[in-house]
């Protein structure tokens, strides 16, 4: 259940931005969450509601953009989509893959008023 501490980090980050960018209310928070990021979106949404209470982001909607997992395949020399770590290349079945994307855990943008 480290989603809750991630949510607390998100709120800290937003509060910091609120003073830097001079906004008082956040109406939407957009996150990019990679498929390999070890985060359960549902738990994140639950933690988000709890963590934002009393903050500038209270009541904000949470948008989660899922970023697919990608890997470079040394067998077919190209980037391929994978479902999880340890998967073989979906094209050539090679096991020689290097994960290149899907670990994102980012606050992408905020909609503020």
């Amino acid at each position: 259940m480290h989603e809750l501490s991630l949510c607390q980090s998100i709120v800290e980050l937003i509060e910091e931005q609120a003073s830097v960018q001079a906004f008082e209310k956040v109406t939407r928070v957009c996150l990019e969450i990679g498929a390999l990021s070890c985060v359960e979106p549902e738990a994140l949404a639950f933690g988000f509601d709890l963590s934002t209470r009393g903050s500038v982001a209270e009541g904000a909607t949470l948008d989660i953009v899922n970023v697919p997992a990608t890997a470079w395949c040394f067998g077919c020399n190209r980037t391929v989509d994978i479902a999880q770590r340890g998967d073989d290349c979906p094209l050539c079945s090679s096991a020689r893959l290097h994960v290149t994307g899907g670990e994102e855990l980012r606050v992408k943008e905020l909609e503020v008023v």
Partner: peptide, 22 residues
Amino acid sequence: GVEVAGVSQRRLVEIETNILAR
């Protein structure tokens, strides 16, 4: 910050920050 002038009072703020940055 990003805004499209004259279209909406709401604005989008690009954060692009790793949640675990701190």
